[in-house]
Amino acid sequence: MKALAVFAVLCRDWSKRWEGVLTAFAAPVVLLVVLAGVYSADLTSSPAVAAGYFVPGLLAASVLGNGVLVFARASAEARDSGLLRRLSLTSLSKSDWALGAILLQVVLGLALTLVMLLVGNLVYGAGLTATGALFAFVALWCLVSTGAGMVVAGLVSGAGRVTGVGLAAALPLTLLSGTFWPVGSMPSYLRDAAALLPMTYLEDGLRASLSGGSPPAVGADAAITGAFAAVLVVLGWWLSWREGAR
């Protein structure tokens, strides 16, 4: 119940942050429309194929941005203003706080998935299907992004710096993980770097889910994404606020 209260208050706070709404919905939809149009005209044979390629990548990038930029900044502001310290003296636990935050990111991530599928299908006729595996991957990625947001907010002092560090983390992940171009088209040293990034496996998994990929391949991607999610959520929970006396 307390996690639901956290979810409700963070949801209200998110809805009043223009950067939150922009990162979560406006930016990926606009990028999808523009990129699929440009790539289909110049580089690929069909806009539907281009849209099918960009939906998973933009979905992943947007969910990541929502965690490491918007949520991390909101957490840092709450910490800097003394709100987290104050909450630590109530009967709210930091597990309630983390759970509420994760819940919000999952709801936003799943809503964005529906919006992206809708735009891809309506604008470009991409024929994308909502599958359980797709939603499961998005939910896992929401855990990764929320955990990463909590880690960034916990380690970096000052809300302004948190945004900078969040961007520094999100940008290489987005560029190297196959969001805008296939990992296979990059030089070998960048492919090696991409192999270390969780977002690479997520995007593989998302694309495989959309195209009905083989269960073993999807399972491996899910296991790697899940492992990153577990580590980041535990670390983020531990760093989110200090419980007990100093």
């Binding site: 119940m1 307390k2 639901l4 209260a5 956290v6 409700a8 208050v9 209200r12 706070d13 009043k16 942050r17 502001e77 709450a78 203003s81 003394g82 709100l83 310290r85 104050r86 109530t90 009967s91 709210l92």
Partner: peptide, 23 residues
């Protein structure tokens, strides 16, 4: 505490509702 910390973008009622929901 000395400085009153709250969600600055939210209304007074939304802030108090959060604390009320905890208890």
């Amino acid at each position: 505490p000395r400085g009153v910390a709250a969600f600055s973008r939210l209304t007074v009622k939304e802030n108090v509702e959060f604390f009320a929901a905890i208890y």
